[in-house]
Nucleic acid binder design. Structure first.
Length: 757
DNA sequence: GATTAGGTTTTG
């Protein structure tokens, strides 16, 4: 049966066959017997006709219908999804529009697959068009859509209320309490409203569900009440929610957008609502009761005052089971000295307020008793509205009686005078002026973050461990800011060392080839000793024309130790500066190197002198060993030239041998930390200046390696807590490197040195 | 189709 149309809603009722019984949507369950039931409801949403792949491409349409007769309405499940299949889907799409009233019968009741998501109704109705029964009554008026249904609500002016009737009203809120637990089973919201008639009407709303209570932020908000029962109480009219009730609230700021606030998934809201809200706003703006109470800032607070405060939460701390401390600000400076409630830093949640405290910007609010439930859930950064906050003078526990008292703030227990607090959504029009004031303090926030360390340092740590040596005076940034910055960049940070690598500091010594940029660890002695052992095995002393050789047999049979000196050098002052040595162990060359300036270990291959594998040092010079780069060293040893050098050092030796000298470098990776973030920074190009130690000297000196360890122990004392570690003023270089074709941002500590006494 | 509260004179 196709969709049938009627002209009047009452005609619909006449169409109900006698064997069918009207049923309410709310009462539908999976076990309802549908065959003798029908529902009547308004189409609040009509989807497009779609083709359902899972059902062989059959066409289907989803509509949401809502119980129309207010008498049938309860708070829950007044709407339900209806799925039309096949030709009925197309038929319904053409015949019905949003706002139309429909009468449906012979549907199938199925479990709603979307209930968890849309919370509409546990069931859905399905209609496939065979025996189904669909009547549509177009909504009144030329226009369709949401506005068409609003004609069904009439709003009674507050001076026209008659006792014991159920009404819909609009009003401006002149007083309200946040919902509080009643002595019965529900939460109770108590409010007073007024309208252009200037009559004030009290209103109580009871509901077990907090989210069903009106969302009120401040006096002057506008509220729409549907289905409230009137009665007379103490000679004036009062309102109480009754079955099918609902509330929607609006901000009262004139010229701000009219945005309905409700937890309800579906509600009537149209042009006439917008008009009504705007008219009430306009009227209320000129009323004296909506006074400047709303706009009390910290700068205006006088001792003894009760006032409403709009502010931002900076930090919080639980004081005891009946009291929570909230540290807040509104960006204005109080004229009276503000009390600072001292709290252990580990008990405080949120940012430090040290700098704002100093500037008399932080209000310490003690929140008591029933308000803890709300206060506990608040997160620092949240915007807050306090109601009936009490400013009072107090002496801090450690204050002398002759000192001036400081202003503290108490949110007393109970709900008298609407006492309470709640968070405000960041987009709330009531917050716009607060936010613009706070934005003027952006620098302060930054300053605060980095300078809290200054105080901690004065209290907890010895004098500065490092100094910056850079000339530039770039801004000091928090680590979080540094991470957000775009390289290349130089900046200053104040941070502590959380961790560093390598923990075994001798491992920070690296070999670096400036030619191919290879970096490697210094080979350990066992690897070097092995190269020596293998080179000495079964070898006959080499015999080079250019060299003068002397040999001696070692303790081990078959191993000969030979020393070679270039004939070119004989007769020159340099002749004892460079000696080639063959057939020794690592230990032996170490002993010999105490007496000879430059010893080059060599081996013999077919009687020709050859350098050892470059895993081993190519040069021993006193305490130091020098390595060559395996990749970049040229083999020019065949015809070495030893003339024209006055003083042999590692550079000259490397050049004469065709070796690419590897440099010693020190590399440490720090994990820096400040109040905002952590960041991994390398100490690399600046390491020698940082420690006042040269890498090559450190390579041969246990004393210098100990010095580096001692310095590291001062900037990150072993087993220290974070608070015990000194703050370091560091210069950071932010740069990017190509890593597998991707740009990777790196950080290096530059221009910073350890301070030496 | 009950009951709750029905602004309040606060206070650590």
């Amino acid at each position: 049966m196709p969709v049938q149309k009627v002209n009047d809603s009452s005609d619909l009722d006449a169409k109900v066959p006698s064997h069918l019984q009207r049923t309410s949507i709310t009462s539908l369950t999976m076990t309802s017997e549908p065959s003798h039931r029908c529902v009547k409801a308004t189409v609040v949403h009509k989807g497009p006709v779609i083709s359902c792949a899972q059902k062989d491409g059959i066409e289907m349409l989803r509509a949401e219908i809502k119980e129309e007769d207010p008498l049938q309405r309860t708070a829950e499940h007044t709407s339900i999804n209806v799925i039309f299949f096949g030709t009925l889907a197309k038929d319904f799409s053409q015949s019905a529009r949003q706002g139309d009233v429909v009468l449906l019968a012979d549907f199938t009741i199925k479990k709603s697959p979307s209930f968890l998501r849309d919370k509409l109704h546990p069931c859905q109705l399905e209609m496939d068009g065979k025996d189904d029964f669909v009547y549509v009554c177009p909504s009144a008026g030329p226009s369709h859509g949401p506005s068409s249904s609003e004609a069904k609500y009439t709003y009674v002016p507050l001076n026209d209320l008659k006792p014991r009737t159920v009404v819909n009203v609009y009003g401006v809120v002149t007083f309200f309490k946040q919902p509080f637990p009643s002595k019965g089973s529900d939460y109770c919201s108590t409010l007073k409203i007024t309208d252009q008639s200037d009559v004030k009407v009290g209103c109580n709303i009871f509901s077990k569900k907090l989210e069903d209570h009106p969302i009120l932020f401040r006096v002057g908000d506008i509220i729409r009440l549907h289905r409230f029962k009137t009665d007379v109480f103490r000679d004036s009219m009062s309102l109480l929610n009754t079955f099918g009730w609902s509330t929607v609230t609006f901000d009262g700021t004139t010229d701000s957008p009219v945005v309905p606030r409700t937890s309800s998934k579906s509600f009537h809201f149209g042009e006439s609502d917008i008009r009504t809200v705007q008219e009430l706003r306009q009227w209320a703006a000129n009323q004296s009761w909506i006074s400047n109470d709303l706009k009390v800032s910290l700068s205006m607070v006088k001792p003894g005052m009760y006032f409403d405060l709009t502010c931002q939460l900076l930090a919080k701390a639980v004081m005891d089971s009946r009291c929570i401390l909230l540290k807040v600000w509104d960006g204005t400076k109080c004229q009276h000295p503000l009390l600072n409630v001292a709290v252990a830093s580990d008990a405080l949640e949120g940012e430090s307020t040290v700098v704002k405290d100093r500037m008399n910007l932080t209000a310490n609010v003690l929140v008591y008793d029933n308000h803890l439930e709300v206060a506990r859930e608040l997160k620092p950064g949240t915007f807050l509205q306090f109601y009936n906050l009490h400013a009072l003078l107090q002496r801090a526990p450690d204050q002398q009686p002759d000192q001036s008292e400081h202003l503290s703030f108490h949110l007393h227990g109970g709900t008298s005078y609407g006492r309470g607090l709640r968070s405000l959504p960041a987009e709330s029009p009531a917050l716009q002026s607060l936010k613009s004031v706070l934005e003027k303090h952006v620098d302060l926030v930054e300053y605060d973050e980095v300078n809290d360390g200054t105080l901690l340092e004065i209290w907890y740590t010895p004098p500065e461990a490092v100094v910056r040596t850079c000339e530039h005076n770039t801004r000091r940034l928090t680590l979080a800011r540094v991470k957000r910055s775009t390289p290349p960049l130089s900046c200053h940070v104040r941070a502590r060392v959380k961790k560093y690598k390598p923990q075994q500091l001798y491992q920070c010594l690296k070999l670096f080839c400036s030619n191919c940029k290879t970096m490697e660890d210094v080979p350990d002695d066992s690897a070097v000793a092995k190269v020596f052992r293998e080179s000495a095995k079964d070898s006959q002393p080499c015999d080079e024309q250019w060299a003068a050789t002397s040999s001696a047999s070692s303790r081990e049979p078959g191993r000969t130790i030979s020393m070679h000196i270039s004939r070119d050098m004989v007769g020159e002052s340099t002749h004892m500066q460079l000696i080639f040595i063959e057939g020794t162990t690592l230990d032996e060359i170490c002993v010999l190197s105490r007496d000879y300036k430059n010893l080059v270990p060599v081996r013999s291959v077919n009687s020709r002198m050859t350098l050892m594998d470059l895993t081993a040092p190519f040069l021993f010079s006193g305490d130091k060993r020098y390595y060559g780069c395996k990749k970049c060293s040229l083999n020019t040893f065949q015809n070495p030239v030893f003339t024209g050098v006055e003083t042999w050092d590692e550079q000259a030796v490397a050049k004469a041998l065709g070796v690419q000298l590897m440099q010693y470098r020190l590399l440490i990776q720090f994990e820096l930390e400040d109040q905002t973030d952590t960041l991994e920074a390398l100490l690399w190009e600046n390491t020698e200046r940082f420690f006042h130690v040269s890498a090559v000297d450190a390579s041969g000196s246990q004393d210098l390696q100990d010095k580096i360890q001692t310095i590291m122990d001062t900037i990150q004392p072993p087993d220290s807590s974070l608070e015990e570690r000194p703050w370091l003023d560091l210069c950071l270089s932010v740069y990017s490197v190509k890593d597998d074709d991707r740009n990777k941002v790196c950080y290096q500590i530059t221009n910073t040195e350890i301070k030496e006494e």
